[in-house]
Amino acid sequence: MISENSPIILSVNNLTANVNGTQILKGMNLEIKAGEIHAIMGPNGSGKSTFSKVLAGHPAYDVTGGEVQFLGQNLLELEPEDRARSGVFLAFQYPLEIPGVSNLDFLRVAYNSRQKHQGLEELDAFDFDELVQQKLDIVKMDAAFLNRSVNEGFSGGEKKRNEILQMALLEPKLGILDETDSGLDIDALKIVADGVNQLSNPDNATLMITHYQRLLNYVVPDYVHVMANGRIIRSGTKDLALELEARGYDWVLDEAAAGVA
């Protein structure tokens, strides 16, 4: 949903970043306003996942230049946990299994860290349990999942639904979905997409990173960006995604190369 007067949630300016000494991001520019849904597409190795991890503050990535403003503050100087508590959420492409830590405890500690950071009331186990029960419906998850260890023995689809459940509880201002559609069958994809749509509102924004048009049939983006070689080379509306699906990436890459030359 595009509205000209919406506040800016994320503003990325000429961002560059390295991993293990190799430059991956080579000047990213992106602005996301409240209420908007953006999709970044692009071939393998274009730097899409790196971009999402840099925004979330993964310590393996070194930012070498540029700026990122999140709700008016300098995101790059915040620790990863403070970025999260301020409202940046990253749904992982490969959610990790954490044996021995129950999903419910994990969710409660995460929820209360955010509450505390934002000066809001922390919930005890009973009140939290009630809250979580309401959120389960968003991703059609069974309550039995709460007492299992985080992601342990979950199927691919269950892990992704668990990510969206976490997003539902933490109510981020910016939800970044990194290849959330990968490895999902069509039913799981619909459930996950439906969850994302329910959570989207005029005060928050969503950034989807994906290879395929498929997800975008269910979560319809306001803007589609094509990323290649560490930067965005073309932006458009949802029609751009359809065109990419039909024609592949080469023509965009060729046009960009011609443009640069």
């Binding site: 990863p80 946990e81 999260a84 021995g100 129950s102 995460a110 860290s113």
Partner: peptide, 28 residues
């Protein structure tokens, strides 16, 4: 490792609390 800690930190949980939760879960 780094990725496990990052997962917790991305959800707003400090690295210290993350280690403590994983260790006590492991030892319970």
């Amino acid at each position: 490792g780094e990725d496990q800690l990052f997962f917790f930190r991305q959800r707003g949980i400090s690295a210290e609390d993350a280690i403590s939760m994983m260790i006590s879960g492991f030892c319970k």
